[in-house]
């Protein structure tokens, strides 16, 4: 169905490019670029989550930092308790096992998304944008005023959490762990998009009246999509905390939510690899322009303006043409 050969080639090229950067960097003895590529993969993963909601469902959540941050805090809090050998909840210990942390982050973000979605999905348009922002800001201020876990100063993870059979302290290994999860999330995105649920979700973006008129309640479809979306972004948050070995309220701030939206628009809204292209461009910009001028975000703004005005499909749309829906 999605038989657009140019898009397939582009997607493949992006995968290979992202996979190759850390290898080349390691070969050249430049570990910093490994970190940069890991940052790209994790932000792309977070944006895959948002792209599911925004790209397929047309729902502009301006509060996805909530899930990114919750995922981050799950990693930080679990690791801190494990490090200090203090029980966490109901006598349960903390953990430094990524698998447990990921499961907890995904589960918690799914629940949080259901709670936020039940309320915010009753609105639409600008109201939806504002109410998702409001929820995320509530969590942000909660984190700031919660001294047990660092409050405003955030929380350090002294030793990066572990994964069986992988030396997560090695930047290259950690990259491939994140990269693997990104590929898995892209596969999930693709399967879901082509499924019956995906059809209902895309139809709810195109025409809710039509969806209801064939007998599918749009609210339930959107709520499930919101939960799936939050779960993927939450997983990225847990990885991001481990990458930086630090989590702070800034992961929950509206800047973060905006960044994810920007990534998607840059890369190509609703396109499978839009978040990947967007994250790569964004992180490169942040790094190179950020090195040249403090005001790099001004130039990013200009580029974004250009994309919105002249290249609505973002990088993927520019190279691979318009999306086809079968």
């Amino acid at each position: 169905m999605m038989g657009n050969p140019r898009e397939t080639i582009l997607n493949l090229a992006l995968v290979l490019l992202l996979a190759a950067i850390p290898l080349v960097a390691t070969g050249m003895g430049e570990p910093f670029y490994v970190t940069l590529a890991t940052r790209m993969a994790i932000l792309a993963l977070a944006a895959v989550g948002l792209n599911f909601l925004l790209g397929l469902g047309g729902l502009v959540s301006f509060g996805h930092a909530a899930f990114f941050g919750i995922g981050g805090y799950v990693a930080g809090i679990a690791a801190t308790h494990a490090f200090n050998a203090e029980p966490l909840l109901f006598g349960l210990p903390g953990t430094n096992q990524m698998i447990v942390i990921w499961l907890a982050a995904v589960l918690l973000c799914g629940l949080a998304a259901l709670a936020i979605g039940v309320i915010s999905l009753r609105t639409s348009g600008v109201y939806f944008i504002m109410i998702t922002l409001a929820f995320a800001q509530m969590i942000y201020y909660f984190a700031i005023s919660w001294p047990a876990y660092g409050g405003e100063d955030g929380l350090s993870i002294y030793v990066r959490n572990g994964f069986p059979g992988v030396n997560t302290l090695n930047g290259l290994h950690f990259f491939y762990l994140c990269f693997g999860l990104l590929l898995a999330a892209l596969a999930v995105f693709s399967v879901l998009r082509n499924s019956r649920f995906g059809a209902a979700l895309e139809a709810s973006r195109q025409n809710q009246q039509r969806l209801a008129a064939v007998g599918i309640a749009p609210f339930r479809v959107k709520l499930v999509a919101f939960a799936i979306s939050g779960m993927i972004t939450g997983l990225a948050g847990a990885l991001f905390a481990d990458l930086n070995r630090f989590v702070s309220p800034s992961m929950l701030s509206w800047h973060m939510s905006g960044e994810l939206i920007v990534l998607i628009i840059l890369g190509g809204t609703g396109r499978l690899f839009g978040p990947v292209a967007g994250a790569m461009v964004y992180v490169l910009f942040e790094f190179y322009l950020g090195g040249v001028t403090e005001r790099w975000q001004f130039f990013l703004g200009l580029i974004l303006l250009g994309v919105v005005l002249f290249a609505r499909g973002g990088v993927v749309g520019l190279i691979a043409g318009k999306a086809r829906h079968g």
């Binding site: 169905m1 399967v191 879901l192 082509n194 499924s195 019956r196 649920f197 995906g198 059809a199 209902a200 895309e202 139809a203 195109q206 025409n207 009246q209 039509r210 969806l211 008129a213 064939v214 007998g215 599918i216 339930r220 479809v221 499930v224 999306a323 829906h325 079968g326």
Partner: peptide, 30 residues
């Protein structure tokens, strides 16, 4: 009132899946 990006076929397929009550299936490609 139709799903404008979808083909005529996919518009009707949406109705078929709605009739079957199978819109919460997540794996099989339509």
């Amino acid at each position: 009132s139709l799903a404008p990006d979808y083909s005529a076929l996919r518009n009707v397929m949406l109705a078929v899946q709605a009739r079957q009550g199978t819109s919460f299936r997540f794996v099989k490609a339509v």
